[in-house]
Design a protein around this nucleic acid. Structure first.
Lengths: 338, 338
DNA sequence: TTGTATGCGTTATCAT
DNA sequence: ATGATAACGCATACAA
């Protein structure tokens, strides 16, 4: 490895002081057009690139964001990866790099994050978060944003979350406007916050149209294909004309059950899915031969917004603690007007 | 944001010089047990954490690895994300952080990477790589590793790749040992290097057992479910007793075709899949009700090895240019002894 | 065993 | 418009 050139060498070559070179690089202060050219030429000649580390030390700012992913066994679900891509992209757009913190153990990151001066701000992501980390970061006034709605005892944390309630309400309204009254909902889980919010939106939609809530048309089972299959089997006894599902897996199971009963989508029953995984969903659509109408989480955008919000906080701006991003309602052909 | 403490403040509090503190932190040089305790106490008291930026500048080493992902439209296929997780994990194990470079345009990274002194080494990943970047990094002697076999004109690059040839050879041998002679292969593509390697392994397996290659049992179509479906339909006319597939999508299509013909897996035909996406595959297995025997790319491990190899190069060790990682042959129940 | 001086490459401050 | 000098926080070399 050859030594990388520094300001001194550029200055010497251009016949000016390092400060002039620095000014040219940063477009700051006044530099005459003539010397500016000399400097630019010198920079090009020796292929000079500013040393980010030295710059960071002097500026006390690294232009690096940290992304902390709390995951199990070192494997991050696809879901997080897509958001991560968005974070990277959003950070990049504003001239920030992204540093990944992730480990299988539940180690605390707070010291490395806040004290080491390596990152200017941090984004938290994952279910099994170390809440002490967030609390600590929060109390130190260190810029951070959490992806996903979050309650942390004792503080009111910054977060950006998909607006599940609003999303399912929109979808429910859509079904109702298509003439549906007996609308099923699979995946009402009190344990999983997003799933419960989806349920709330569904309920609100019904309420706004004066449709009485029928608990026979709601199932708590929410995780696997088997859950969706069983829930749908049971629910079909009560003849819903439409059904909303909480994720890709339950959707698959439910569709299997519907087909087994000899029903056709959307002729006999309308279906709205909830797509947590676009690639998976795409492939299933191909396989099932069905273009599912669904609510989509704009994961890339979610990540981007998280990055931009964090950067805005880094730069000293004020923001509300709770931030929401609309879901995308994708109307395909699994719903029918009654 | 409160000011973070530095060596000076620890030293003052402990009543020693900053050098003693530095020695305690780095476990270098001789420090008496007594002063060591004083220093440790002081560190704990003010919650001191070394400033990584200052350390990096002084050491001329950041302990940060860069990961460059060349992708399209800012979206990285799941495949890369899993490898990325491995890279992060591997780097972390050896005390390195990971910085992500990724953008939708085909921008060159070489200057930022090599010259800015931000990262000690770099890992490249993706199809549409900017070859000039690699060449430049290579020629400067900057530590790097490419994930996936790579040919770059003019140089012999460092890479670590799944051993596709060996993998499919093992799988082919397995089928032959189970008594199969008419073994089909779907996905021989000259355009996609890994797919062609898979084909080569298949061919070698046949050759080792003196089975003549029958091109009626080989299909070039290799990308989509439709490809797999069509290829299988055609191939079934020649009555293979077993078939190997090149990826999850063609597998799905092929299985559909097999079922349509009224054949049962594994009773009528044995199937070996190639799993590029574990989550997808898992879900399909559930759906199809079939535990597919398949070749798996150990993506997490691939990423880890890439990180460790890069770090080893950073630390001045010698390594061969070409490095291979064995595929995992997962024997489930889609194959039958003849 | 401990401390002092110097440098890492840049930016900020204050001169000129 | 340009330059000299002092930070930035730590590590290395050299003293004591």
């Amino acid at each position: 490895m050859e030594k990388t050139p520094n300001l001194n060498e550029v200055a010497k070559l251009a016949g000016v002081s390092i400060m002039t070179v620095s000014r040219v690089i940063n477009n700051s202060g006044k530099v005459s057009e003539k010397t500016k050219q000399k400097v630019l030429d010198a920079i090009k000649e020796i292929d000079y690139q500013p040393n980010m580390i030295a710059r960071s030390l002097a500026r006390k700012k690294t232009n690096i964001l940290g992304l902390v992913i709390y995951s199990e066994e070192g494997v991050h679900p696809t879901f997080y990866n897509e958001i991560m891509n968005g974070v990277q992209s959003g950070a990049s757009e504003l001239g920030y790099d992204l540093l990944i913190f992730a480990q299988n153990d539940e180690q605390s990151y707070r010291n490395r994050i806040i004290r080491s001066s390596l990152v200017d701000g941090v984004i938290f992501m994952g279910i099994h978060v170390n809440e002490d980390d967030i609390r600590s970061v929060h109390e130190k006034g260190f810029p951070y944003v959490f992806v996903g709605k979050r309650e942390v005892k004792g503080i009111e944390p910054y977060y950006i979350s998909p607006n599940y309630i609003e999303g399912t309400k929109v979808a429910t309204n859509y079904l109702i406007e298509q003439g549906h009254q007996k609308i099923g909902f699979i995946g009402q889980s009190k344990k999983i916050a997003p799933d419960y919010d989806k349920f709330l939106g569904y309920k609100q939609g019904l309420k706004e149209h004066g449709i009485t809530y029928n608990e026979k048309l709601v199932s708590e089972q929410s995780q696997s294909q088997a859950d969706g299959y069983n829930a749908m089997k049971e629910m079909l006894k009560h003849k819903p004309t439409a059904v909303m599902l909480n994720n890709t897996y339950t959707t698959l199971g439910a569709i299997t059950a519907i087909k087994e009963e000899g029903l056709v989508i959307p002729d006999d029953i309308s279906v709205i899915g909830f797509d947590d995984n676009q690639e998976l969903n795409q492939q299933f659509n191909d396989f099932i031969g069905l273009d599912l109408t669904s609510l989509q989480i704009p994961k890339l955008e979610l990540g981007k917004q998280a990055a931009k919000l964090t950067i805005s906080l880094v730069e000293g701006n004020e923001h509300p603690k709770a931030n929401y991003l609309d879901l995308v309602f994708l109307q395909k052909n699994s719903c029918q007007k009654l």
